[in-house]
């Protein structure tokens, strides 16, 4: 299964991965401007730019083989699709946040959507034909989409 890998040596910590992730998951996936200016709530990213003195990188759900979030989910809303991508079925989700606690990486986040709590996680942009949006728009190719275990 292909995964997104952050190359910390080349991450410029710009945050464009977050901007484009938020956009593509908004009501206006084709326009950053509209996504941020017209959406009722500020669009939220499912990739998170982590920064420290030594390194930075855009990180997102690891789509673990043995995913604690799936095991923890009380309604079965968290599931793995045929391609191995761990997804959250919002219809079945009751926003209990058990998955948030279960995730060893802290990569499932709660978000406030106009008074309504939602849980958001990376879906690897599985609806798109090309690579995940954060990879496509990473300006320094510091996010790459590679088969698991592939060396760089």
């Amino acid at each position: 299964m292909k995964k997104v890998v952050a190359i910390k040596e080349y991450c410029v910590a710009c945050g464009l991965c977050e901007v484009y992730c938020a956009t593509v998951h908004s009501r206006y996936p084709d326009s950053v401007l509209k996504a941020f200016k017209l959406s009722p709530q500020k669009p939220v990213s499912r990739v998170f730019l982590e920064k420290s003195e030594q390194w930075s990188g855009g990180i997102q759900c690891r789509h673990c083989k043995d995913a604690p979030c799936i095991a923890a989910c009380i309604t079965g809303a968290m599931y793995r699709n045929r391609d191995g991508i761990v997804l959250l079925d919002e219809e079945r989700c009751v926003q209990c946040s058990t998955c948030v606690i279960a995730c060893p990486y802290g990569l499932i986040k709660e978000s406030d959507m106009g008074g309504r709590k939602v849980l958001l996680k990376c879906d690897l942009c599985y609806q798109l034909a090309e690579s995940p949006t954060c990879v496509t728009y990473c300006p320094n190719e510091a996010l790459i989409w590679v088969e698991e275990g592939e060396t760089l």
Partner: peptide, 10 residues
Amino acid sequence: CIECQVCVNQ
């Protein structure tokens, strides 16, 4: 401007 702070970061 969408206040994304990419400019601040860069």
